Simulated assay, not measured.
Amino acid sequence: MVRVVFLHPDLGIGGAERLVIDAALALRSRGHDVLVITAHHDPSHCFPETIDGTLSVRAAGDWLPSSLLGSCRALCAYVRMLYIALYLLLLESFDVIFCDQISACIPLLKLFSRRRIVFYCHFPDQLLTRRESFLKRVYRAPLDWLEEWSTGLAHVILVNSMFTANVFKDTFKSLSKVTPQVLYPSLNFSAFDTETELLNDDVLPPGRDIYFLSINRYERKKNLALAIEAFSLLKLRLSDEKWRRTHLVMAGGYDSRVPENREHHDELRHLVASLNLEEHVTFLRSVSDARKRALLRGCACLVYTPSGEHFGIVPVEAMYAGRPVVAVASGGPLETVVDASTGFLRKADAAAFADAMLEFVDDETLGSAMGRRGRELVLRRFSFQAFTEQLDNVVTAR
């Protein structure tokens, strides 16, 4: 038995957070003692396993600011991560540290402990922000250097896809001799097979039996407007009868603390209004796992709009639910979606997406056929058992 401590900056709802929860569950299933320490954990905005007693979660350092007058978010995140690392060193015993997203705390951990450190790199942090001014470039320079240097100090570096592994190599030039291991996120099938909830009229108006689904955080980089614009073009391709049956559900991760979530949600609603689609589009915010499963199982297809996505767990969830995926042909979906077999990979263009979506309206059996192949693919490639085996080998290696 190994005592594993996970360090995560903000245990909300998202792909990175889902991976941490699944990793903790995987190691616990192998008999390891697992603890999750995070700087922020809101019981009203988190995965249920973190509040129902399934996992032990400690929050430390939430009193530290997450920004300075709306700026310097990266610096504040680094400081908060250093604080929870210090909390760990002073108050907890451990054998392995699984550090997620932010590597800045690794030098402190390595200096004061002799334990194995595993770092999971979802994507280089320095590529997630723009450098539009000289002041921003000056501010980011030491943080970028710290990210690269501290990442290289980990005993094991994991990434979520071959795409991210290649970006890692191209970005961290001083780590050219380091080869990160690819640990694909997976689905805990038993958790995903639990009951769903009924979709009420507040989600789908009566008679809307063909609906398209978008699931992503309300962030501009997720290109959610593409789903709405494609849906608007789809309207022009449908008969009045088919259009009356058709709907779009925009289900997005939403945190009221994040200004961009609030702003972008409003922007998308205004876009829908400008296209006169209000009666055919439903916006949902931070849906429960049960509702997400229900939405996935009934949709005509998942419309997945980000470009250069690092991995993207939602297409895998959709395929396991037996539904096809229309995704941008870049990044992680190139490793998860098989074009013309489990869905369609298209350029990030509204007309191209609308053409793909039309296929599922014209031939309602196509979605079932692609969905079956998608589920078979997920069972082979992204099983929780394979994920657990690989992760167990990482934390027990000598």
Rank of each mutant, 00 (worst) to 15 (best):
residue 11 L to Q: 12
residue 16 A to C: 10
residue 19 L to D: 10
residue 24 A to V: 14
residue 28 R to T: 10
residue 36 V to M: 10
residue 42 D to Q: 07
residue 47 F to M: 10
residue 56 S to V: 13
residue 57 V to C: 09
residue 57 V to Q: 04
residue 62 D to L: 04
residue 62 D to P: 01
residue 63 W to F: 15
residue 64 L to H: 09
residue 65 P to G: 14
residue 69 L to E: 09
residue 72 C to H: 14
residue 73 R to T: 15
residue 78 Y to T: 06
residue 80 R to H: 08
residue 80 R to Q: 06
residue 83 Y to F: 15
residue 94 F to G: 04
residue 98 F to E: 11
residue 104 A to I: 10
residue 105 C to I: 07
residue 109 L to D: 04
residue 110 K to N: 04
residue 114 R to E: 08
residue 118 V to F: 14
residue 118 V to I: 15
residue 121 C to I: 05
residue 127 L to Y: 01
residue 138 V to H: 05
residue 138 V to M: 11
residue 150 S to F: 14
residue 157 I to Y: 02
residue 161 S to Y: 13
residue 161 S to T: 12
residue 174 S to R: 15
residue 191 A to Q: 14
residue 200 N to K: 13
residue 206 P to G: 00
residue 207 G to N: 00
residue 212 F to M: 03
residue 213 L to C: 00
residue 215 I to A: 00
residue 224 L to S: 01
residue 225 A to N: 06
residue 226 L to V: 06
residue 242 K to V: 05
residue 245 R to H: 11
residue 261 N to I: 05
residue 279 E to H: 11
residue 285 R to Y: 00
residue 287 V to S: 00
residue 294 A to Q: 00
residue 295 L to T: 04
residue 304 Y to T: 02
residue 305 T to H: 01
residue 305 T to G: 04
residue 307 S to A: 13
residue 307 S to F: 08
residue 307 S to T: 13
residue 320 Y to F: 14
residue 324 P to D: 00
residue 331 G to H: 09
residue 335 E to S: 05
residue 340 A to I: 02
residue 341 S to V: 13
residue 343 G to C: 07
residue 344 F to Y: 15
residue 347 K to W: 03
residue 349 D to S: 07
residue 357 M to H: 02
residue 360 F to M: 05
residue 363 D to S: 12
residue 363 D to K: 09
residue 376 E to G: 02
residue 381 R to K: 15
residue 382 F to S: 09
residue 388 T to F: 05
residue 388 T to S: 14
residue 393 N to T: 08
residue 394 V to R: 10
residue 396 T to A: 07
